[in-house]
């Protein structure tokens, strides 16, 4: 049932991208996601796509693992695309048949929307493909540390986050076990009436919740027994340090985004000129 959950599965290889500082990767991913919303021309998309492909190659990831994370949201992408295609009414009318109208602007918006979503998802999945959950939690803790000044319990939040991340695979495994056990008793998850299916889901959800509480209890005891919260200052087993490679990565990503912004606000004509050059009369 959960075979297709590939989004966020760490892909263990050794590469310069894997070795980058988690904080840098977090910030750059954020910049990439924000930057994506400023793209207006096809030229901008090509730039961002080039950056993405370059990163995938340097990270030694099979392109399939990146595309697999897109597969999970394909339905949303399709619905958005269809809505855009049929609902945008301005621009040159290309097709008109009964109540269906497709305009040139609609086509462009649709293509750009799909590109944006696909690039967004695959870019974001790069973070989790190249960074372990623990590294991500540590990175977030470090990035949020200024909030300690205004009495935000950053350390506890980070602990909660890493525990949550840590238990995702455990919960998946447990869910699969429960599904197997209830299937063995004839529970119908993918056949039978709606009522039977709901009953089958309940037979998994209730034990899952009961077991989670039990596990949380045990974990709390274990942490208490190891004096969690007894000391104010905690030291880290792995300390994060910035290296030269982090600088290079930052320059590369931020540089691309700067070009995208320049393209949008100052040299809009360049982007459009490039689009015309590449796509000819289509734009």
């Amino acid at each position: 049932m959960f075979k297709d959950v590939a989004f966020g599965q760490y892909y263990p290889t050794r590469s310069p991208v894997h070795r980058l500082d988690a904080r840098v990767k977090l910030l750059l991913t954020l910049a990439y996601v924000v930057g994506m919303f400023f793209i207006k021309s096809y030229f901008g998309f090509i730039l961002m796509a080039a950056l993405l492909v370059f990163t995938v190659i340097v990270a030694r990831l099979p392109i399939l693992s990146v595309l697999r994370s897109v597969r999970g949201v394909m339905l949303i992408v399709l619905i958005t695309a269809i809505l855009n295609l049929f609902l945008v009414k301005d621009g040159e009318v290309l097709v008109h048949w009964r109540f269906i109208t497709i305009t040139s602007n609609g086509v462009h918006l649709t293509i750009k929307m799909v590109l944006r979503l696909v690039l967004l998802i695959s870019g974001a999945s790069l973070l989790s493909l190249t960074t372990t959950p623990v590294e991500i939690a540590d990175g977030l803790e470090s990035l949020m540390s200024p909030l300690k000044l205004i009495k935000v319990p950053v350390r506890d939040i980070a602990m909660i986050m890493s525990i949550a991340l840590r238990f995702i695979p455990t919960l998946f495994e447990e869910t699969n076990k429960l599904i197997a056990a209830q299937k063995a008793r004839g529970a119908a998850f993918d056949s039978g009436s709606l009522f039977a299916r709901i009953r089958a889901m309940v037979s998994v959800l209730i034990p899952l919740i009961v077991n989670s509480f039990r596990r949380a209890d045990e974990l709390a005891f274990a942490m208490d027994a190891r004096c969690y919260n007894a000391t104010d200052k905690r030291t880290k087993y792995k300390r994060m340090t910035l290296r030269f490679a982090d600088l290079i990565a930052a320059l590369l990503v931020l540089g691309t985004i700067v070009v995208v912004l320049l393209d949008r606000y100052y040299f809009a004509s360049v982007g459009i000129y490039m689009d015309k050059l590449i796509f000819g009369g289509l734009v």
Binding site: Q182, A184, V202, P207
Partner: peptide, 12 residues
């Protein structure tokens, strides 16, 4: 009939 490991955690 299959009785999995720790079957008591499957009661609901």
């Amino acid at each position: 009939g299959m009785v999995f490991q720790y079957p008591e955690y499957q009661l609901f």
